[in-house]
């Protein structure tokens, strides 16, 4: 009992230290939303929602730059989310759909077994 409590306290301290480290590191990162649109004027989040063409995409980098700027040349899909799910992250979607497959197989095994057992008990 006492050893368990010591282990719990130590693991909590480790988690706390990791959280503090993450917070202190995240505090030094540059801000993603600086309150300015593409033209450099101050803009509200509500205004961005009402007029999405004002998004500042000038300093997007890496895969975000490709997804935002070259979506139509690369995929011709009007729905950008479908392009991300099935093209840019197609391997991820493969795993997602196989999660569904395995979960249904597991549910079938468990539920069908309990069903059969219930019938046997009644007999």
């Amino acid at each position: 009992m006492k050893a368990k409590r010591i282990v719990a306290i130590i693991s909590l301290l480790v988690i706390l230290a990791a959280g503090l480290f993450a917070v202190l590191n995240a505090y030094t990162l540059p801000r993603a939303y600086d309150g300015k649109d593409a033209a450099g004027n101050a803009i509200d989040v509500v205004e961005l929602y009402e007029n999405p063409t004002n998004y500042d995409v000038s300093d997007a980098d890496g895969i975000a730059d490709i997804i935002v700027k070259q979506n139509l040349e690369k995929t011709m899909a009007a729905n950008n989310v479908a392009a991300v799910v099935f093209d840019f992250r197609g391997f991820d979607t493969l795993g997602e759909s196989f999660i569904l497959l395995t979960s249904i197989a597991g549910a079938f095994v468990i539920l069908a077994k309990s069903h059969k057992k219930k019938k046997e008990d009644e007999q």
Binding site: T75, M76, A77, F86, T93
Partner: peptide, 11 residues
């Protein structure tokens, strides 16, 4: 959209 469309159908 090429294979994206048919991947969506299969999913």
């Amino acid at each position: 959209a090429g294979t994206i469309t048919f991947m969506g159908y299969s999913v």
